[in-house]
């Protein structure tokens, strides 16, 4: 082999080595450690299901809310709405979810009945439970829960 050919061969080896090193370095720096599975949606759905089913004053919470909307006080408290809000806040607080990290909205016959929490539902990184819609005593009951940064 001529001297020029040997030098080109050496250069080729160096280029191949640098390319291999660059590929590994890129893979190392771009590696994110695997996809973190989002379980917020599951938690949001379970929370909504557990909240609305919960027995309060011998009725489910959803029934108690509709009664309260209709002016019936199922729980013999001074103000049924204040009582319901405080109980919901107590349950969510026990789950270590901060007020900024959730929003719980209940509307009955398209009127906003309860709005708790400070989570901005317009944010993109929120988790939303499938809305709970039911006809209770001929009133359309709808409940939504949003979780953000939880």
């Amino acid at each position: 082999m001529k001297k020029a050919q040997v030098e080109i061969f050496g250069l080729l080896i160096i280029v191949i080595l640098i390319t291999i090193i660059a590929i590994f370095a890129l893979r190392f720096f771009l590696y994110t450690g695997g996809e973190s599975e989002r379980n917020q949606d599951v938690i949001a759905n379970n929370l909504l299901n557990a909240l609305l089913k919960t027995t309060m004053c011998e009725k489910s919470l959803s029934d108690v809310m509709v009664d309260c909307y209709n002016g019936l006080n199922s729980c013999d408290s001074e103000n049924c709405k204040t009582y319901i809000v405080s109980e919901i806040k107590f349950i969510i607080n026990k789950l270590d979810i901060k007020e900024e990290d959730y929003k719980f909205i209940v509307s009955i016959s398209d009127d906003d009945f309860i709005k708790i929490g400070k989570c901005d539902e317009k944010k993109q990184d929120i988790s939303l439970a499938a809305p709970y819609v039911k006809n209770i005593n001929s009133k359309l009951f709808k409940a939504d829960i949003y979780l953000c940064n939880y």
């Binding site: 379980n39 557990a50 909240l51 089913k53 919960t54």
Partner: peptide, 18 residues
Amino acid sequence: TTPVSLFYPLTNEYKVGL
């Protein structure tokens, strides 16, 4: 953790479990 609805058949009540 996740919240779940806990059913108590003897009293026919639903409670919140974790």
